[in-house]
Design a protein around this nucleic acid. Structure first.
Lengths: 155, 155
DNA sequence: ACTATTAATGCATACTAATGCGATGCCCCG
DNA sequence: CGGGGCATCGCATTAGTATGCATTAATAGT
């Protein structure tokens, strides 16, 4: 039944927040004492649904209720988001400054980081501005050319 | 060899920060391409040492470099946290770009600020990247040398 | 009420990760 | 040199997690 599944998952989060649980079998035992009788299979699926992380350490591995795992747009490919968010591009020396719509800098910067171009030493992003440090002026020009091309592509 | 172990673990953190890695075997293959040839056993131990979390989700499980746990950051000395958080260092002109594990930039930058070196005009930190503006290229080289030394210190 | 459809599970098993143990390579001290 | 103390790592094996498939429920439509 649907309701009990939710309640069970809630109970799981409580247990995980309260104690140090090392395995699904251990979790199963604890749930048993609380009246829930399910198999390890179910727990595996519950933990996946809840995105509960398994963190190993020299003191043993433990389950921890994660960040919420909301993977918003932070995994979108550059080519997909740049046309929507891009505003302008300019630079000096080895630095490139890209402006985006408000709130657009973080997703664009994270897409940029993921591409791991050797032309870019790193990026720092605020809310609507990204500073890219390039390896050289030449590198900056290459990056600028590529970004303007990507930005102009209509989706 | 101690050195290669630490380097390998850094390579692991970089890979994990860049791609979606689902298993130790997959990680092993990626490391192989980078010239590291180790077994799954070793990766299991490395991931434990690094406290890398394994997070399941409906889209598949993946490894994510967690918070690194212990340090609450804001008052830790540079030498203490850098080895844990450091990923890479690079620069052009008077600028130095330091990459850290996700979430590591703020604590490192604040530790840097507290040292108040006259070689560094200032720092700007995002989530995993720090930009340092140095007084000169020579200053940048000094700072870079010092930071790599600190970063390599075994915990 | 009957059948189709979808969810939730258990079972058995495939897959993945952790670990006991021994081998190896260092480093240091006598 | 030679042996002790350490740390690292691979191999083999065990421990633990994920999943395909079948079953049972609950729900909806006619």
């Amino acid at each position: 039944m649907t309701v009990s599944k939710r309640e069970r998952q809630h109970a799981i989060l409580e247990l995980i927040g309260t104690r140090e649980i090392a395995s699904q079998e251990e979790l199963r035992q604890l749930l048993l004492k609380k009246g829930w009788d399910v198999t390890q299979s179910t727990l595996s699926r519950d933990l996946r649904d809840l995105r509960v992380a398994r963190v190993p350490s020299p003191q043993g591995t433990r389950y921890v209720a994660g960040d919420s795992g909301a993977d918003d747009g932070s995994r979108a490919p550059l080519a997909g988001i740049l046309p929507q968010l891009f505003l302008s591009l300019d630079g000096v020396g080895p630095m490139l400054v890209l402006k985006t719509v408000i709130g657009g800098a973080q997703p664009v910067a994270s897409a940029l980081d993921r591409e791991a171009s050797s032309d870019i030493l790193g990026t720092i992003a605020g809310d609507d501005t990204i500073l890219m440090i390039c390896r050289s002026e030449q590198a900056r020009e290459r990056v600028a050319r590529r970004l303007s091309t990507l930005a102009k592509r209509p989706r």
